[in-house]
């Protein structure tokens, strides 16, 4: 069962993709008005970029057969996902009021999906580290 072996990595890939695509679509930050670029716009760009990086890592973890390399990529994904979770509001500041979309929608969804990605990556890494060489 080749597919069954890849299930943890596929879950990781789904969360990473959701983080990457969701950050500029269904849970995007505030829309700018006119020529004004909102403070949160840069946080959104950073989350999208980190989401793309996580997606790349997840794909690589599926393609590469060596379990130690897989585990290494997944552990790196854990750290990247944790970093992604703290981008909005901590690493890059958001807009001024809690009622704004970047605070009420973008930040909670980013934290949620980044946490799920980190958990999925950690679970995959543990599975691959525990698995014996076949």
């Amino acid at each position: 069962m080749k597919l069954k072996r890849h299930i943890p990595n596929i879950i990781l890939l789904i969360f990473s993709l959701a983080l990457c695509i969701g950050s500029f679509t269904f849970f995007s930050a505030c829309a700018g008005h006119g020529v004004t670029v909102m403070a949160c716009h840069w946080a959104q760009n950073a989350v999208t970029a980190l989401g793309a990086l996580l997606t790349g890592m997840s794909l690589a973890a599926i393609i590469i057969p060596d379990r130690k390399v897989k585990a290494g990529l997944e552990l790196a994904a854990v750290l990247t996902a944790v970093l992604t979770a703290i981008v909005p509001g901590v690493v890059i500041s958001l807009c001024m009021m809690n009622s704004m979309r970047c605070v009420s929608v973008f930040r909670p969804f980013t934290i949620l999906f980044a946490s799920l990605t980190a958990l999925a990556a950690l679970a995959s890494a543990v599975i691959h580290l525990k698995k014996k060489e076949q």
């Binding site: 829309a31 700018g32 909102m38 403070a39 009021m97 704004m100």
Partner: peptide, 10 residues
């Protein structure tokens, strides 16, 4: 008004 900081009014 919609200030540079925010798109909502304060």
């Amino acid at each position: 008004a919609k200030a540079s900081c925010c798109s909502t009014r304060l």
